[in-house]
Simulated scan of single mutants.
Amino acid sequence: MKRYTGFKLLIVDDHEHNLFTLRTLIERHMDVQVFEADSGQQAIDIALHEPAIDLIILDVQMPGMDGFQTASMLKIRSKTKDIPIIFLTAAFKTEAFQQKGYEVGAVDYLLKPIDDNQLINKISTYFRLIEKERGLNRVLEQKVKERTAELAAAKRHLENILTHMGEALLLLNPEGEIESVNPAACEMLSYPEDDLVGMTIADIFEEEEQEQAGAFFGTWLEALIRTGALNRIEARFIAKDGRRVPILFSRTAVKDEAGELQHIICIAKDMTGYVREEDAVDSAS
């Protein structure tokens, strides 16, 4: 049973008889598509214009551009640089020539006359390696596809939570500038999202104690860097129309692997209509 259907093999030799012999041998054992070139330049042209050549069998001794020069030209082109090349030669048999063949990028250097089974086994070896690599790539691509789908689903789920959560959420950079908000924040502050992004937290926030108002962000940073989170405090948002919206406010630091502050997540609950415990006690008195 013939194997390797769909593979493409380029054989290069300046003698027509050698091309015929190679083609006949290969097609006897393999169901591959064989391309022929009788010169180095023709080999380069075929490899550049025929998509996905899998293997090149290249004669060394050719007039004009020899096999070494041809291999060098193939290896400097991005489209052909990864195609495995097997050299075949009857003349350049010394170890120095074999070393040169490997230096210009060949994966094998075979001497003529070559045993038919040896050549077929060599070709089969490289086709099996290519099959294995392609199989691994397919598995990897499938895993990447599945992981991408999982991440997209998780992202949609998180976005859905943020969109429908009742609390206002604001994402700040370390300088206190607002980078993103959820719909609840826009509704609470009566600002469209595009207006809020780029504002600073100081533009929309005030703490209950007046003396804290000027330096509260610096205090935040110090505490966030030290602890990673701050307990809820009672404060007020300043809406677009000047309204003070009472809120219960918490902040969390997001740090990178080096421990540097990257973002600050702020969550605010609208406390309009709620009565503080101490206020309730005062009213009862």
Rank of each mutant, 00 (worst) to 15 (best):
M165A: 12
G218V: 10
F217D: 04
A185T: 00
R232D: 13
K143I: 06
N173V: 07
A149W: 02
Q212M: 15
H164S: 09
L162A: 09
E159W: 04
E209K: 13
E211F: 14
R226T: 13
A152F: 09
E234L: 10
L224P: 03
L230E: 08
E159V: 00
M199T: 01
D203A: 07
G228L: 09
P192E: 06
N182S: 04
Y191M: 01
F216Q: 03
E208A: 11
L224R: 12
N182V: 05
A184Y: 01
A168F: 05
P183V: 00
A213D: 12
L224A: 00
P174E: 03
A152S: 13
E193W: 06
M188W: 00
A153I: 08
L196A: 06
G218L: 08
I204L: 05
C186M: 12
Y191V: 01
E209N: 12
K155V: 05
L158S: 03
T219R: 14
E159D: 14
P183K: 04
A153P: 05
L172A: 05
C186T: 10
P192G: 02
A202V: 01
E222L: 14
P183F: 04
N182C: 08
T227Q: 12
L171H: 05
L169R: 03
A154F: 09
A154Q: 14
T227C: 07
G214V: 08
T148A: 09
R156Q: 14
F217V: 03
V144A: 11
A152D: 11
N231P: 12
I201E: 04
S180G: 07
P192K: 04
A213W: 13
G198H: 08
G166A: 13
A202K: 09
E175F: 07
C186Q: 06
A213F: 08
I233N: 09
R147Q: 15
A202R: 09
R232L: 06
I201L: 11
A184H: 02
N173Q: 05
A185Y: 02
F217P: 01
M199C: 07
E209T: 14
W220L: 15
A229W: 11
L151P: 00
F217L: 04
E179V: 08
A229E: 13
V197E: 02
E150H: 03
K155E: 15
F205H: 07
T219M: 11
E222D: 15
E208N: 06
A152M: 13
E167K: 07
I233H: 07
V144F: 11
A202Q: 08
T200M: 01
A213I: 13
M199V: 02
I204T: 02
E177A: 09
E159M: 02
G218F: 10
A229R: 14
